[in-house]
């Protein structure tokens, strides 16, 4: 490489490329679509192709005009459906995150404390479900939970129940689907922070008079906080906007914002309203991320 022979200019060029690439990427694939969605959210729906009014009105006799309306956002706040969808999504995402944390923490801790050859195998088992299609795994859950699914058949043949349990198309099925799908995203960051934990620190606490439960709450838990935050965000954020799981496993009463957004977009073909739903969802998501950043900075300081 030239950059090695002539450090000055080549180095700067390389640095520029390396730093610039992610920014260009974000600009092209995040900021630009976001700007488009934002623009559409201020438009009115019309029956046309594309199905919304333009942002700039070039044709008008009064010169250039910006045709922006807040009607969509007003509508979001007026119609109860959206508020219920948002709140329900937040509730389902929060509860799923908590369940993932409760399940994932002991698993991550056990993996971090397992001696080496086995540890890699256990990690592999955590990642293994990713090797099959996400949709296939959700369909598999449907097969298991259906009216005449594996679980009901088994319980019936064992005589535990007289008639099939209604498992599929309930909120419970949605929780199960989300926890099952996102558990690895909780386990991996938790494992990363627990694995770094020096075992001496636990022994030091025990040596200073802490009983095993006290060692956990005084030492293990506080030191795993970065992993807990990272894992919770990784579960909470996708779970909040989840569409496939509530659509396939949820019932009619399972209102989640991802599903509502889909309906606005593809069923009602109201693109502007769907975009407003998406923008509001993004605003809700930014809040935990800003909090996370704040915690990170505090931890580093």
């Amino acid at each position: 490489m030239n950059g090695i022979v002539h450090p000055g200019r080549g180095d700067r060029l390389w640095r520029g490329i390396i730093i610039g690439t992610p920014y260009v990427w974000l600009l092209l694939f995040f900021l630009a679509p976001f700007a488009i969605v934002l623009k559409i959210s201020f438009a009115d729906p019309i029956v046309a192709q594309p199905p919304f009014t333009p942002f700039f009105d070039w044709s008008a006799s009064a010169g250039q005009r910006i045709l922006a309306t807040l009607d969509n956002y007003r509508f979001l706040l007026e119609d109860n459906l959206y508020l219920v969808s948002y709140l329900n999504s937040i509730k389902i995402a929060l509860v799923s995150t908590a369940l993932c944390l409760l399940l994932g923490f002991p698993m991550a801790y056990a993996i971090a404390r397992t001696p080496q050859p086995w540890r890699n195998l256990l990690l592999l088992l955590v990642i293994l479900p990713f090797w099959t299609s996400f949709l296939l795994r959700i369909y598999a859950l449907m097969v298991m939970m259906g009216q005449h699914g594996l679980v009901n058949d088994l319980l019936l043949s064992l005589g535990v129940i007289d008639q099939p349990l209604a498992m599929l198309y309930t909120n419970g099925a949605v929780y199960l689907g989300i926890v099952y799908s996102y558990l690895p995203f909780m386990i991996l960051p938790l494992y990363a922070s627990l694995e770094k934990l020096d075992h001496d620190v636990h022994e030091a606490a025990a040596d200073l008079g802490a009983k095993p439960t006290q060692v956990f709450f005084d030492i293990t838990l506080p030191m795993a906080v970065p992993g807990i935050i990272a894992g919770s965000l990784l579960v909470f954020i996708p779970a909040l906007g989840e569409y496939v799981i509530p659509a396939l496993l949820g019932g009619l009463d399972t209102l989640m914002i991802g599903h509502t957004l889909y309906d606005e977009f593809f069923v009602n073909r109201d693109w502007p309203l769907a975009c407003a739903v998406a923008i509001l969802l993004l605003l809700i998501l930014i809040l935990p991320i800003v909090l996370f950043q704040h915690f990170q900075q505090e931890a580093d300081a």
């Binding site: 020096d198 022994e203 030091a204 506080p222």
Partner: peptide, 20 residues
Amino acid sequence: LPPYLRPVNMMFQSYAVFPH
């Protein structure tokens, strides 16, 4: 006796101070 009940304290080679 478990460590937390012994009249003994230890200074670790790694020091094992609580980082938080």
